[in-house]
């Protein structure tokens, strides 16, 4: 068993919404829990996929575990060291070991700097290498991310989406990280480029022994690159386990809906089924969007199982939000009926 590089326990992150001067002075704030008690761990050189819809808190988890934003409570242990309350100065040397790839292709790329200057800066954040060493490292980085030399003289605005992504990855690799949080690394790219980037990330993992927290809503890609997958719903992990079991034997009704919505889009069989108008029969799965977390199980208002079982009281009992239960082989699920 390889060594645990990141261990997150009962992580919480509340966002407060301030509105104007008066509520600020009066100290009245609206608190929204973006991450509501999440625990997971990453082993060295493995990939954990984090899936869920927008607003479920998956990006916030990524930012919080890297301490780009401070957790409200919980514990984050990186490589055996508790980093939950470290100060900025104490964090700085650790930063180089944990990096983030942002969804936005322009993240970290100063629009007024050429690619060469961007990479040079990244190489000199923690070290003072000689010019010759910098030149060697830049060549090495370009090779690693498969980018042409000629792009070094370009400004970010002159790069295509795929090239921006490669520069962004090279910039992160420059500090030689061990853990990378990849937040929707492909969602801003064209389909044909997405495949290139997914292959690149897997290559880099193999050669550099990287560990990934792979945040994405693209289920097939997550299933492909991850050993473990965690499914989030409104700030909580509702199911977590090996990628194969999450994909093929999902237990939580929400995970099933996620996967079936993918299957709906893919398979022509369901297509014909829909054409006959039969989809309408699945009414309860149909029309709803973001809702406030209900008391009890937060998924109950959208849950087909809750409807099928005749709305059992345990699902909406404020005292019993279903905890994550182990159902064997490291597969955990938060549902009273799974």
């Amino acid at each position: 068993m390889s060594h645990t590089i990141l261990d997150v326990t009962d992580l919480r992150k509340d966002y407060s919404q301030r509105r104007g001067l008066i509520p600020m002075l009066a100290g009245r704030e609206r608190v929204i829990p973006a991450v509501d008690g999440v625990s997971f761990y990453l082993r060295e050189n493995e990939t954990v996929g984090l899936v869920g819809e927008s607003g479920c808190g998956k990006t916030t988890i990524g930012r919080t575990v890297l301490r780009l934003t401070d957790p409200s409570s919980g514990r984050i242990v990186f490589d055996g060291r508790d980093i939950t309350r470290l100060s900025r100065a104490e964090l700085r040397p650790l930063r180089r070991e944990m990096q983030m790839i942002f969804q936005d292709l322009d993240a970290g790329l100063n629009p007024k700097m050429r690619v060469h200057a961007i990479l040079r800066e990244a190489l000199t954040v923690y070290e003072r290498p000689s010019d010759a060493e910098i030149a060697r490292r830049i060549r090495e980085l370009l090779e690693q991310v498969n980018l042409k030399d000629s792009k070094l003289a370009n400004f970010p605005s002159q790069l295509s989406g795929g090239e921006k992504r490669r520069v962004g990855i090279a910039r992160v690799l420059a500090v030689r990280p061990r853990l990378i949080v990849a937040d929707e690394p492909t969602s801003a790219l064209d389909v044909s480029i997405q495949a290139q980037v997914v292959n690149l990330l897997r290559d880099l993992q193999k050669h550099l022994g990287l560990t990934y927290l792979f945040i994405s809503h693209d289920l097939p890609v997550v299933e492909l690159v991850s050993q473990k997958v965690a499914v989030m719903y409104l700030g909580r992990i509702v199911e977590m386990g090996l990628a194969e079991s999450i994909a093929h034997q999902p237990l939580h009704p929400y995970t099933r809906i996620l996967w079936s919505s993918l299957a709906d889009k893919r398979s022509t069989e369901v297509n014909l089924y829909a054409r006959s108008g039969a989809t309408a029969a699945r009414g309860t799965w149909g029309v709803f969007d973001f809702e406030q977390p209900a008391s009890g199980c937060r998924f109950a208002p959208r849950c087909p199982l809750y409807q099928d079982k005749g709305r059992p009281a345990v699902c909406t009992d404020p005292a019993s939000e279903p905890p994550l239960r182990d159902v064997g082989k490291g597969h955990v699920v938060a549902c009273h009926f799974a």
Partner: peptide, 13 residues
């Protein structure tokens, strides 16, 4: 994703 497939369902209907 889940909303997408509902919209596709709707367009199909």
């Amino acid at each position: 994703a889940t909303i997408q497939s509902r919209i596709v369902d709707l367009l199909a209907q």
